[in-house]
Amino acid sequence: MTDFEAMALIAKGDKSAFDVIVKRHQNALINYFMRYSGNLDTAAELSQEVFLRIYKARDRYKPKAKFTTYLFRVAHNLAINELIAKKRPDTKPIDNDEKIETLTTPDDNPETGTMAIETSDTIKEAMMQLNPAERSAIILKYTQGMSYKEISKSTGRSVAGVESLLIRAKTKLKAELQKRGVSAS
């Protein structure tokens, strides 16, 4: 079943077809948000949010572009607008935090066994110095292996815009890596 076929079934009310979509794309999506946020739990949470948004908008989906282009357009928008605007997950007001604590079941497994697959601290720190748009573009390029044209469709920028964004991002990244003792040779 192709992504388009699955989305057509979902629009007709076949919820189980959405499992196919999630199963097929969750790894790429979690990777994107993991590189973006530096945290695997946050990445899974945001990926789930992307899938839910796509599901909620199922009636309006039109197979114009590749499904992954659409998927990462939603992901990119979430990363750029929401993640930063709301500064999640660390900076909630303290009193609200306490309220939340009392309402939830305590869940105590802080990052067990995830170190190996998360980005090395040096690269993570350097990546965090990039602004959201730059970071997203770098990840779409290097983690998703997208061409400039694909990145342009997922970010709503022109191809030339993507090129100059990536040049800026790489210049910054290079400086940040060198600051941290990473050199080319």
């Binding site: 919820k15 959405f18 499992d19 999630v22 199963k23 969750q26 790894n27 790429a28 979690i30 990777n31 993991m34 590189r35 695997l40 990445a43 899974a44 990926s47 789930q48 899938f51 839910l52 599901y55 066994g113 995830t114 697959i117 980005t119 090395s120 690269i123 770098i138 990840i139 290097y142 983690t143 998703q144 790489k170 990244l173 290079k174 890596l177 990473v182 050199s183 080319a184 040779s185």
Partner: peptide, 29 residues
Amino acid sequence: QEKALFSGLANSLETVEIPEKYNLVDSVA
């Protein structure tokens, strides 16, 4: 030098296999 730096970066940003405990199929459903 630029080539060496960014191919190194590309390697460390490559897509990796996410552990099964983060499988979203059930939670999304």
